[in-house]
């Protein structure tokens, strides 16, 4: 597989980071950065990461099944993650998640027909004191009301 020059550069740096002979350590960071570019953890990507890190493909595959941010199917261009854990729940996180489902017309880990949005009810993302919180791709949004979530989503639709 070929990747963008920026990702190739990152991969090269990753393989240098760890002590000599410990390139297996690069597997998880490589997967998550590659997923951002490829869109999903495909069988080809698993083979490629295994080859580059010098491990068996199965050793990569078992990792994919464990970590919640690694996805075998493509997510939407904008992955909307709504936290409903305790601190968010107390101040409207569950209502916000229900609102997001209606607004996008999809459920947990589903993707809109046009591939633009996906939705996930996530566990605590470390924004408890500024709850309820939403993370869209890697951008945090704090004290989010249903109206603000509408605006955020509408804004992303327009940007597209």
């Amino acid at each position: 597989m070929t990747f963008s020059p920026a990702l190739e550069e990152r991969f090269a740096a990753l393989l240098q980071k760890y002590p000599e002979g410990k390139t297996r350590s690069a597997v998880i960071p490589m997967l998550i950065y590659a997923q951002d570019e490829v869109g999903a953890i495909t069988p080809e990507l698993i083979e490629e990461v295994a080859k580059r890190c010098g491990v068996a493909p199965l050793q990569v595959d078992e990792v994919v099944g464990y970590y919640s941010m690694l996805h075998r199917k493509p997510l939407g261009k904008y992955h909307v993650q709504v936290c409903t854990n305790i601190s968010c729940m107390l101040v409207g996180g569950e209502e916000l998640y229900e609102h997001a489902k209606k607004k996008l017309g999809i459920g947990h880990k589903e993707v809109t027909a046009d591939g633009q949005f996906s939705l996930e009810e996530v566990e605590c993302m470390g924004a408890c004191s500024w709850a309820p919180a939403v993370e869209i791709n890697y951008d945090f949004h704090h004290f989010v009301t249903p109206e603000q979530l509408d605006k955020l989503i509408d804004g992303l639709k327009k940007a597209h």
Binding site: K22, R24, S25, I28, Y33, C53, V55, Q59, Y67, S68
Partner: peptide, 22 residues
């Protein structure tokens, strides 16, 4: 070093396994 979503990796020995690519 980037994790990839797992509360369990806050436990120190699980974190070390994760750091080792497992």
């Amino acid at each position: 070093h980037s994790g990839a979503g797992a509360y369990e990796c806050g436990e120190e020995t699980a974190l070390l396994d994760s750091l080792e690519g497992k």
